[in-house]
């Protein structure tokens, strides 16, 4: 399986390198965390807000930018199109589940992003010496693990929404609703601690947090050991639920597939 992934990723990289400018532009449009940083940075000029000083916002949002980049998923556009225009047929002929073809394509993109983001991260460390993270081997390992889980959840949820295209033509519109909630409750517009207590209490357990901000929270060192463990359990729960949901929808959808357009 690994050989297959490498072969597919190699080809995806080839395609991306044909469109060098496009890849960079797509990276640049994912700057919403930086916009939010500018907003909160100026608001916190006169003193900390809800326990977040300017330096905390910088630490939070710069790492969130990294998470946002590393968990970027666009599979809904591709899969929805492939289903409705019958192009899925080509991938269904491969002797494996087509999800691997889409996943390897997305992972190839992450290689390119890392190559751009690592030098940028080093520059940022010099420009913003006020960044503070909990830099222990454990927290870094946990961050990498929860980041991988965040990517998997983003991918699976989008993939499952795209599979709805087997029945409806508006799969992308349905996903927009999910996406909007993710922006709100995933820690993008504000760190979840800053939400009104009742909202924060619920958002803490919803899947959206584990699809973006949780790895950042781990690195900021603001979580107690119990909170971290609870977060890991919730991540495992939601990831498992998404795998089950994906399988269920896939098995039914594929029977529905009518391979139009050819």
């Amino acid at each position: 399986m690994l050989t297959k992934y490498f072969a597919l990723m190699r080809r995806s990289l080839g395609v991306m390198l044909e469109y060098r400018a496009g890849v960079l532009i797509w990276m640049l449009v994912n700057v919403m965390p930086l916009v939010m940083l500018a907003v909160w940075f100026s608001l916190a000029e006169d003193g900390p807000i809800g326990g977040y000083a300017q330096a905390d916002f910088v630490s939070y949002y710069l790492l969130l930018t990294f998470m946002r980049q590393m968990t970027t998923v666009w599979v809904i556009h591709e899969l929805d199109y492939d289903i409705r225009y019958g192009n899925l047929s080509i991938k269904l002929l491969y002797p494996f589940n087509p999800i691997h073809a889409y996943m390897s394509d997305n992972l190839a993109d992450k290689i390119i992003r890392l190559a751009v983001l690592i030098p940028l991260g080093i520059v940022a460390a010099f420009l913003f010496p006020m960044m503070r993270y909990e830099l222990t081997p454990l927290s870094v390992a946990l961050m990498l693990l929860t980041m991988a889980a965040a990517w998997a959840m983003r991918f699976l949820s989008q993939y499952t929404f795209a599979l709805l295209a087997f029945w409806v033509s508006e799969a992308q519109t349905l996903h927009e609703i999910w996406y909007a909630v993710w922006l709100m409750l995933g820690g993008m517009v504000a760190p979840l601690d800053l939400f009104p207590a009742p909202v924060a209490a619920i958002a803490k357990y919803l899947p959206f947090r584990f699809m973006l901000s949780f790895p950042v929270e781990v690195m900021l060192g603001r979580l107690t050991a119990d909170e971290t463990l609870l977060g890991l359990a919730a991540t495992a729960f939601w990831l498992g639920a998404m795998i089950v949901a994906y399988r269920w929808v896939w098995r039914r959808g594929i029977k529905q597939f009518s391979a139009f357009g050819a």
Binding site: T3, K4, F6, A7, L8, R10, R11, G14, V15, E18, Y19, Y94, P95, F96
Partner: peptide
């Protein structure tokens, strides 16, 4: 793959 030489697809298929 539209943007690459056919050989790239042949290699992918060899692996798949």
């Amino acid at each position: 793959a539209w943007d690459l030489p056919p050989m790239e697809t042949f290699l992918v298929n060899a692996a798949i």
